[in-house]
């Protein structure tokens, strides 16, 4: 990694909880926001003094009111536009990013779209094809590799977009509400896929969602943001061990944690 933030003492022992597997060892800092503020040229103050550190093998979800600057935070991390003040530390070479919109190229079939990033990175043709088909299958789009985006449903487009980012196997992965348009069952299935992917590839995740259960199920930490201008109000450590048992969703601890976050989010919206 080219990122060099001095390694800091880890925040205490790995969280306790109903564990079914070993705790994931937290590593070096993989992505950090230090006192980020963002004011758009039109005067909109989107973020105010946001500090957030994500370590290797951590999976952090962000929930917050609509328009509070969550997408803006990811755009700043990726370098799409510069923050007004503060510092971002990240290895952008190893950064995966799925946008809030599927952003597929209408003139390319699904496979061509999934191959795009690999193409821009100079992968060989055969390799592109192999990985693309693999990822298309992963997100449950097999049989649709030769469809144009205009013939896919909104959820299917999003899955194609996800496959495109996954193909590069980045170390740090940012997701901007990737499953917002999906039905509950597909969403849960993809959540499980994401967790197992997270386990297999030991990537670091920053995930934005409006679904609190989804955030809790996926993450090792959930961050609640305030209304615009976005600030970080509260961080919740999620104590459940990986890999996560799909039945976790029905446990009392899970429900209690979701409740707690929900209350906090409601406060964020109402204050």
């Amino acid at each position: 990694m080219t990122l060099q933030a001095e390694s800091q003492p880890s925040d205490g022992a790995p969280p306790a909880g109903p564990q079914t597997g070993g705790p994931r060892p937290l590593g070096e800092v993989a992505l950090s926001f230090e006192n980020i503020s963002m004011q758009f040229p039109d005067g909109t103050q989107a973020l105010e003094d946001v500090s957030l550190t994500i370590r290797q093998n951590e999976f952090v979800s962000v929930v917050g009111p609509s328009g509070c600057g969550k997408s803006t935070l990811l755009k700043i991390a990726s370098g799409l536009f510069p923050q007004t003040s503060g510092i971002v530390k990240v290895d952008r070479e190893q950064l995966g990013y799925t946008f809030q919109d599927a952003t597929l190229m209408p003139w390319r079939k699904v496979r061509g779209n999934v191959e795009l990033l690999m193409e821009l990175r100079g992968y060989s043709k055969a390799e592109r094809k192999r990985i693309a088909l693999e990822q298309i299958k992963m997100v449950g789009l097999d049989g649709f590799a030769d469809h144009y985006p205009k013939r896919l449903s909104g959820g299917m487009r999003m899955r194609a977009s996800l496959a495109r980012s996954l193909a590069l196997k980045p170390n740090v992965f940012m997701f901007d509400e990737p499953f917002g348009a999906l039905d509950e069952i597909t969403r849960e299935r993809l959540n499980d896929e994401l967790v197992s992917l997270f386990m297999r590839n030991s990537f670091t995740g920053l995930f934005i969602t409006h679904s609190i259960p989804e955030a809790v199920y996926l993450s090792s930490k959930v961050v609640v943001m305030s209304r615009r201008p976005g600030r970080i109000l509260k961080e919740f450590d999620i104590p459940f061990a990986y890999p996560r048992d799909p039945n976790l969703r029905f446990s009392a601890e899970f429900a209690a944690l979701c409740n707690e976050i929900s209350v906090s989010l409601r406060q964020a919206i109402e204050q």
Partner: peptide
């Protein structure tokens, strides 16, 4: 052209 598509290219340093 869709800004998002341009952003994809920019992020890969195209």
């Amino acid at each position: 052209v869709d800004r998002g598509i341009i952003n994809l290219f920019r992020l890969q340093g195209a």
